[in-house]
Computed example of a mutant assay.
Amino acid sequence: MNGMSKTYGLSVREGRLMKDDKPYKGVGVNYFNAFARRLANASDRSYLQGFKELASYRIPFVRFMAGGYWPNDNRLYLEDKAGYFALMDDFVKAAEEAGIGLIPSLFWYHSNVPDLAGEPRNSWGDPNSRTIGFMREYIREVVSRYERSPAIWGWEFGNEYNLEQDLPSAPDHRPPVVPHMGTPEQRSDQDDLSSDHVYTALRLFAEEVRKYDNHRMIVSGNSIPRPSQWNQREHGKFEQDTEDQFKIMLGLDNPDPFDVISTHYYLYEGDRFNRPQDMDRSMQLMQEAASERGKPLFIGEFGVSETVEDGRIDHELAKARFTEMVHSLEKADVPLSALWVYDYEPQPTCTVTGRNERAYQLKLLEEWNRRLTEDSSGE
């Protein structure tokens, strides 16, 4: 891209998110399987109506899985790349026409690519592995193809790899064995991930993306660290981290050249820092960690399930909790965030559309985006 070319999407300048050369803040949604549906059924273009509805609520962007989940979901890409990219071209064009930004998560599920490559999951840590070779090829093909699309807002590596790393109980948390979906028939300790494996993959991903796109933000896709993430890495124990250790892990999990701090946040029960979880304090700490590193904070998932502790569905309690969460994010001045999840039937107590009992969530996001737009116009 030469100096006279227009830049698209979101970039980071001096620690601030920028769009069209202006500071930007916004809240979008996770439209997780919008493209995956098309892979499963070539006639499924339900994202056309989805984009239209999201645009009506002033939702500016979506985060989505840009590929298959299980190895067998990638059959079209492996056997007919022209056919695969014809589907993705249509998806990207639909977003362009609807005015919806896209944050594609290129390698969503942590065992998918190693399984495709016939390697164990720790191959993410080997720069010479077939896993990394596949990653590089897919980045080249996707990023170079859509680098000029105004719909692409940023590039994400995958989903919550950091929650898989340095687990003292790793043998109990290996990827599932589902041979009819393309997984191997057994797992071993070679499928256990360390943070060093993940950090190697992250670095190589970001370096490869920068070969084809020199300005869009690059996102790890990592979640908020586990309450014991630092102690897992340093001592192999599920012991609660301190606030300072929490901030250290946020930095390590989003290394340079990643230019945002990626986290996900939910109202889980349980302690953090050896005390009951405090949402406002967690937001403050994440903002501090981001600011100290000169990177804006991206909460790539947030939301509330309507299932309460005894398994009951409680719409009103969920609505109150969701409203509280939105207020907390807004009070913390989080510059970029995305609701989990839009139009995803497999999660019936979380899925949000403009036609179900959780449509109020889209309305709250619409109002929040309006305030963010008004605030930015006054800067």
Score class of each variant (00 low, 15 high):
Gly354Phe: 01
Leu362Tyr: 06
Arg174Thr: 03
Trp70Val: 09
Ala289Met: 04
Gly3Glu: 12
Thr373Tyr: 09
Ser56Gln: 05
Tyr360Gln: 02
Asn122Thr: 04
Leu204Gln: 14
Thr183Phe: 06
Gly133Asn: 10
Tyr268Lys: 10
Thr353Phe: 06
Tyr57Glu: 00
Phe258Ala: 05
Leu336Gln: 05
Arg148Leu: 12
Ser46Thr: 06
Lys331Ala: 15
Glu141Asn: 13
Arg281Ser: 02
Arg121Gln: 11
Leu48Phe: 08
Asn122Met: 09
Ser43Arg: 10
Pro23Tyr: 01
Tyr109Phe: 10
Ile139Leu: 03
Pro171Ser: 00
Met286Phe: 04
Leu87Thr: 00
Ile59Gln: 04
Leu339Cys: 07
Asp192Ala: 13
Trp124Phe: 05
Asp172Phe: 14
Asn159Pro: 04
Met249Trp: 05
Glu243His: 07
Phe64His: 11
Pro225Lys: 09
Arg140Cys: 15
Asp196Phe: 14
Val308Asp: 07
Asn222His: 03
Asp256Val: 08
Ala34Gln: 03
Gly50Thr: 00
Thr263Phe: 08
Thr131Gly: 11
Trp108Ile: 05
Lys81Ser: 09
Phe85His: 03
Leu48Glu: 09
Asp196Trp: 15
Thr7Cys: 10
Val92His: 06
Asn369Ala: 05
Trp153Asn: 07
Gly67Trp: 05
Arg355Leu: 13
Ser377Lys: 13
Ser220Lys: 02
Tyr84Pro: 11
Asp375Gln: 15
Thr307Pro: 05
Met18Trp: 00
Ser144Gln: 15
Glu234His: 14
Ala332Glu: 00
Tyr8Ser: 03
Asp126Gln: 06
Arg13Lys: 13
Leu285Asn: 01
Gly28Tyr: 02
His110Arg: 11
Lys22Cys: 07
Met181Ala: 15
Trp230Cys: 08
Gln165Gly: 12
Ile100Ala: 02
Asn2Tyr: 11
Phe322Asp: 01
Ser46Lys: 10
Glu357Met: 13
Ser328Ala: 15
Asn254Met: 01
Arg63Pro: 02
Ser129Arg: 05
Thr353Glu: 01
Ile313Ser: 11
Asp115Thr: 08
Phe302Leu: 10
Gly28Lys: 12
Lys19Gln: 06
Arg187Lys: 07
Ser56Val: 01
Asn128Ile: 02
Thr200Leu: 11
Arg16Tyr: 07
Met135Gln: 13
Thr323Glu: 09
Gly68Cys: 01
Val198Leu: 15
Tyr360Ile: 01
Ser377His: 14
Met283Ile: 01
Glu97Met: 14
Arg16Val: 12
Lys247Leu: 04
